[in-house]
Design a protein around this nucleic acid. Structure first.
Length: 445
RNA sequence: UCCUCGGUAGCUCAACGGUAGAGCGGCCGGCUGUUAACCGGUAGGCUGCAGGUUCAAAUCCUGCCCGAGGAGCCA
């Protein structure tokens, strides 16, 4: 019995008789030769059927086997520079083929398709090479996130998905019935993490998060994954050091372990090689000046209007795009106006109108991938803020309690998995970075 | 919620007031090394829906539905 192998291991079996099991990705023939390209989840490889070498019935099967039919093919591995595939360079000289199921006409072809069609067929689209590559990078990003945090003293503490109230009170939440009461799908685990650090020092939660925002852009999903590390005895400067090490590790891991996938995606990896600590740090005030300079240099009145911004407002994505194009690495922007951010952010010493908040903006126009801050640790200040933001004190009793029993300076941030994967892959749409995206207009399939 | 663009064969698109077409995919045939192969043949349509203008509407007008991109908001 020949050994069944995975396509990713094919180069280790040169000259051996082996079995591949998978699906027909594409097929072409030249009369005496049939090339059946198969994929098995680990890679893509071509199986070559030569009329003179195989029984006539088998040759006819090879000529007619439909795209996406499930097959088990046995043959001899040989090196050939002409052989396409991932990893490529090796092919199977086919000798036997069992067709487990003859697929019906597959709607998705190896060519360009429209977004609407592909999204409606997402359950089939994920079989395509580019989607396969993106989702494998995603899996690696997620593992790198956990590996780095686990190795650096962060304890995984999952926070609730069903929550009693808005964590930040600003964004729209999905509402659900909770035995006659209202509950909301979590938009952040941060407040719970602030409780967890008093038990574990450094923690992170990692899970889906839900936002019912009516955003119709390529940077938004209604359900997305976010990792939120939180650390006790950590100020904003120490937070930035954590973030740059963390993000650099994620990028480096993808470069090392997903080179073939990034090549499929035609990613310019030299842009990613530069992502090493330290990252540049600029203040909100400096960023505002840079945007103003860029704006002054523009001729197009429409774009000038888009880049208009007065002190006190948060940057929009046009501002972020212009700003990040000036930097080769991700850039920290810190010290946002207090009123543009959430209620729990520590004020800047001597400048209460500014908060110790920091966002990390990815290069090449990919925008905000993390948002974080030092949190208010003083009891009276937090109570004052709840009032100023007109938040119900009862709902935050437990959160306020954390400032009564050994309060310490602490900080944390959230990193959006899909935005990070989009940037690392160098692709256009967030929706391709999760197997079944949920957007404003889609909950199917 | 607002702005812009779009909906024609299974898919990607053309036809822009006068008989609805091509490429890919499917099916049939040909070809020793294909890389979205190539060559020949063939089937395939309520032009998003509802009204209107006209001798005549995929095409012009009105309304609606659906989708995409962007703004705001955010990861």
């Amino acid at each position: 019995m020949p050994q069944t192998i995975r396509i990713e291991d094919i180069s280790h079996h040169d000259g051996e008789r082996v079995t591949l099991q998978g699906w027909v990705y594409n097929r072409t023939d030249t009369g005496k030769l049939v090339f059946v390209w198969i994929r098995d989840g680990t890679g893509f490889a071509q199986c070559v059927f030569f009329r003179g070498n195989v029984p006539p019935e088998l040759f006819e099967d090879a000529q007619s086997v439909a795209q996406e039919s499930s097959v088990v093919i046995t043959g001899t591995v040989r090196q050939d520079d002409r052989a396409p595939g991932i990893p490529g360079g090796f092919e199977l000289g086919a000798e036997e083929m069992e067709i487990l199921q003859h697929a019906e006409e597959f709607p998705i072809q190896p060519k360009e398709h429209g977004v609407d069609f592909l999204m409606a067929n997402r359950h089939l689209w994920i079989r395509s090479q580019r989607q396969w590559a993106v989702l494998r990078v995603r899996a690696t990003v997620i593992r790198a996130i956990r590996d780095w945090l686990d190795a650096n003293g962060f304890v995984n503490m999952d926070t609730p998905i069903l929550t009693p109230a808005a964590c930040e009170g600003t964004t729209t939440l999905f509402e659900t019935d909770y035995f006659g009461d209202l509950a909301y799908l979590a938009q952040s685990g941060q407040l719970y993490n602030e409780a967890n650090i008093y038990a574990f020092g450094r923690v992170y939660c990692f899970g889906p998060t839900f936002r019912a925002e009516k955003s119709k852009t390529r940077r938004h999903l209604t359900e997305f994954w976010m990792v939120e590390p939180e650390a006790a005895f950590c100020d904003m400067d120490q937070l930035m050091e954590i973030e740059e090490e963390f993000v650099s590790y994620i990028v480096r891991t993808c470069l090392e372990e997903r080179a073939e996938e990034l090549e499929v995606l035609e990613r310019d990896t030299s842009r990613l090689e530069r992502v090493t600590p330290p990252f540049p740090r600029i203040s909100y005030d400096e960023a505002l000046e840079i945007v103003a300079e860029i704006r002054e240099a523009m001729d197009d009145p429409a774009r000038r209007e888009l880049l208009e911004l007065e002190w006190g407002n948060d940057f929009g994505s046009p501002h972020e795009t212009e700003l990040t194009e000036r930097f080769a690495k991700p850039v920290f922007v810190y010290g946002y106006p207090t009123r543009a951010k959430a209620f729990y952010m520590e004020p800047w010493p001597g400048r209460p109108e500014v908060s110790k908040s920091v966002d990390l903006l990815a290069p090449e126009g990919y925008g905000e991938i993390t948002g974080g801050s030092e949190r208010i640790s003083d009891l009276d200040l937090l109570l004052q803020r709840l009032d100023e933001w007109e938040l119900p004190r009862e709902a935050f009793e437990w959160y306020v309690d954390l400032r009564r029993y050994g309060s310490v300076p602490h900080s944390g941030f959230g990193l959006g998995v899909e935005r990070t994967v989009t940037w690392i892959c160098g692709i256009d749409h967030l929706r391709e970075t999760i197997a079944f995206p949920r957007t404003l207009t889609r909950v199917y399939p």
